[in-house]
Amino acid sequence: MNLNFDTVQSSPVRPQPASNRLLASLPEDELQQIEALCEPIEAEVGDLLFEPGEPIHYIYFPIDALVSLLAVAEGRMTLEVGSVGREGMIGASVALGHGQAQVRAVVQRAGRMLRMGAEEFCSEFSRNEALQRLLHRYTDTLLAQAIQIAVCSRFHVLEARLARSLLITRDRLQSEKFHLTHEFLAHALGVRRVGVTKAASALQQQKLITYSRGNIEILDSAGLEAVSCRCYELVKDDGSLGISTVFV
């Protein structure tokens, strides 16, 4: 995976506050207060937001970027345990007493995000009851997703896991077309690239997707959902909280 350790660049254009669905779910006055403390940035594919064990200096609210959360073992083996798009946030665990990152957060799709200092976020969390309620409601969601992905990775065949991953990416991006390299998918699924190639070929032969040089298009969503394990139904937006998110 080509990880870019350069700092993401600030953007001169401030996005609309409602562009991040999680922020938009806050009361208007609280939304304005938090947005005033944020700066807009442009993130590129491969930008590394943080590594396991590193202090969390910023909180990120994606707008049209997508960030992959990877568990890391022995410094090199990885497994995707979540992805965050405009429905969520990254780094919120600092408000819950976890000042160090537990996963690798790497930009999967370039785009805009709002960035907020961790100290400012903690101060807002301590006084903002709406924000407290929002984050506490997602604690159980995060735990349930992490458990389900662990079960999926242990017991389900790679073809079904790949289908699940593609469907979740589609949901986060709200698009049937996106770019994911074999290398990235291998890191995300914790397998060798040859395994990804075989699984993607099987899905393509069933006319569920097209896959060429990392460019993926889902041709048959219903068919892909049928191939996917039931884990997709359990980790996608469940509607019970209005929006779905993962935070670390």
Score class of each variant (00 low, 15 high):
residue 109 R to K: 11
residue 126 S to Q: 11
residue 166 L to P: 09
residue 120 E to R: 10
residue 118 A to C: 10
residue 124 E to I: 08
residue 88 G to P: 01
residue 102 Q to T: 10
residue 155 F to I: 09
residue 148 Q to S: 14
residue 117 G to I: 00
residue 138 Y to C: 08
residue 119 E to A: 14
residue 126 S to D: 13
residue 111 G to C: 06
residue 175 S to Y: 03
residue 164 R to W: 02
residue 171 D to M: 12
residue 104 R to Y: 00
residue 153 S to F: 10
residue 143 L to V: 13
residue 106 V to S: 06
residue 130 A to I: 03
residue 100 Q to D: 09
residue 171 D to V: 06
residue 88 G to V: 01
residue 109 R to V: 07
residue 122 C to L: 07
residue 132 Q to T: 01
residue 167 L to R: 07
residue 157 V to C: 03
residue 133 R to E: 08
residue 171 D to C: 04
residue 125 F to R: 09
residue 108 Q to E: 14
residue 171 D to F: 09
residue 154 R to L: 13
residue 138 Y to I: 05
residue 121 F to R: 06
residue 107 V to Y: 03
residue 171 D to P: 02
residue 110 A to H: 01
residue 100 Q to T: 10
residue 114 L to D: 01
residue 129 E to R: 13
residue 166 L to R: 07
residue 92 A to R: 02
residue 115 R to Y: 09
residue 103 V to T: 09
residue 164 R to P: 00
residue 118 A to I: 08
residue 98 H to D: 02
residue 112 R to W: 06
residue 124 E to T: 05
residue 125 F to I: 07
residue 121 F to E: 03
residue 138 Y to P: 05
residue 112 R to Y: 08
residue 149 I to V: 15
residue 137 R to Y: 03
residue 134 L to K: 14
residue 147 I to L: 13
residue 130 A to C: 03
residue 171 D to N: 12
residue 90 I to T: 00
residue 162 L to Q: 06
residue 105 A to G: 08
residue 156 H to Y: 09
residue 148 Q to E: 15
residue 123 S to Y: 11
residue 142 L to H: 11
residue 124 E to M: 12
residue 97 G to W: 05
residue 162 L to H: 07
residue 128 N to G: 05
residue 106 V to K: 01
residue 148 Q to W: 07
residue 110 A to F: 00
residue 113 M to V: 14
residue 141 T to S: 12
residue 94 V to S: 05
residue 130 A to Y: 07
residue 174 Q to E: 15
residue 123 S to G: 11
residue 148 Q to F: 07
residue 152 C to P: 00
residue 123 S to C: 10
residue 167 L to C: 08
residue 149 I to L: 15
residue 121 F to N: 05
residue 159 E to L: 05
residue 158 L to T: 14
residue 105 A to V: 02
residue 173 L to C: 02
residue 169 T to R: 12
residue 99 G to F: 15
residue 112 R to F: 06
residue 148 Q to V: 11
residue 88 G to Q: 03
residue 113 M to W: 10
residue 101 A to T: 02
residue 136 H to W: 11
residue 93 S to Q: 09
residue 120 E to F: 04
residue 164 R to T: 09
residue 83 S to T: 01
residue 143 L to S: 12
residue 110 A to M: 00
residue 86 R to E: 04
residue 170 R to E: 14
residue 168 I to L: 15
residue 175 S to T: 08
residue 160 A to I: 05
residue 103 V to Q: 11
residue 124 E to N: 12
residue 141 T to F: 02
residue 136 H to T: 10
residue 168 I to D: 09
residue 160 A to T: 11
residue 120 E to C: 02
residue 123 S to A: 15
residue 144 A to W: 08
